[in-house]
Simulated assay, not measured.
Amino acid sequence: MNRAFLRRDLLCRLLAYSAFGMVSAPAAWAQQVDLLSHARATGVIRIANTQASPPWSMLDDRNQPAGYDVEVAKEVAKRIGVAKVEFVADLFKNFVEGLKAGKYELVMNDLTPTAEREKQVDFSTAYGLEDFRIFVRAVNNDIKDRPDLKGKRIGVTAGTSNESWSRANLLNSEIVTYDNGGLVFNDLAIGRIDALISSHFGGMRYATVNKLPIKEVGPVLTYQLSAAAMQKNQPALREAVSKAVKDMRADGTIDRLSNRWLGVSYQMSTEITQAERQ
């Protein structure tokens, strides 16, 4: 075996080891670094959202992120001392693992702090609240309430609290998951599923903007808070984001943004406070 071959073999091994090391490097780095200090130093914080779940996050006519969560995220970044937000598009089902892998510092997209999620990531003080309802085709008069969902195909967005709630409470229904929140509405409109579970604001906004022949039926199924999610063991980031949100709730910013993006006179801060006391 000649020396040239040995050198090539050694080089290949070193490159392979380096590549394997780089796969886990972002996650290991993020777990060791104070992410708030790093974001302030670089002037940039990465915040994930779907950009496909209006009115919470979507793309506007200039193909830029827009929506309630987007505006709240920009204001939070400003108040914690970070000049720029880099929005990262991802799926609901990827958010928790994306945080743990260091793909972004925060998730702000109508994400509910469930007990299962809190085992893996931390959450800030809540900045949103919504009620979840049943949506059916406009011509459907058979489904009026939760009992009518028995034996039906129910659409939900994968990885959302809508999915976990449906699987826990609609045991006699077939739960159909979608990676893209918009596709579930389209499939309902053309009859591929019998109903879907969505937030009142999100469902009505999507149906109205896209002129879909669907309607909301029945009483509220459940109320769910939304908060900013982040990696565990980042106390400075969690404290700073929570303080920013609390100040925004107190000074009227949350109500102003919710009125703008939800299209109603809605006292979001008051509703959140009442839900937190329950």
Rank of each mutant, 00 (worst) to 15 (best):
L11F: 13
L15N: 05
S18M: 11
A25F: 15
Q32E: 10
D34I: 08
L35F: 12
L36Y: 12
L36C: 06
S37A: 14
H38N: 00
A39Y: 03
P54R: 14
P55R: 07
D61L: 09
Q64E: 07
V72R: 04
V72Q: 07
K74V: 00
E75I: 06
V76K: 08
N94Y: 06
F95I: 01
A101W: 13
M108I: 14
D110P: 03
P113F: 15
A115E: 13
F132W: 05
V136E: 01
A138L: 13
K144G: 01
R146Y: 09
P147M: 13
L149A: 08
G151W: 06
G155D: 02
V156S: 05
V156I: 08
S166W: 11
L171D: 05
N172A: 15
D179W: 12
V184D: 03
V184P: 04
H200E: 10
G203K: 01
V209R: 04
V209I: 14
V209G: 06
K211A: 14
G218V: 01
G218F: 03
T222I: 08
S226I: 05
N233G: 08
N233V: 12
Q234W: 03
S242K: 10
R249F: 03
G252D: 00
R260F: 11
S269C: 15
T270G: 13
E271N: 15
R277A: 13
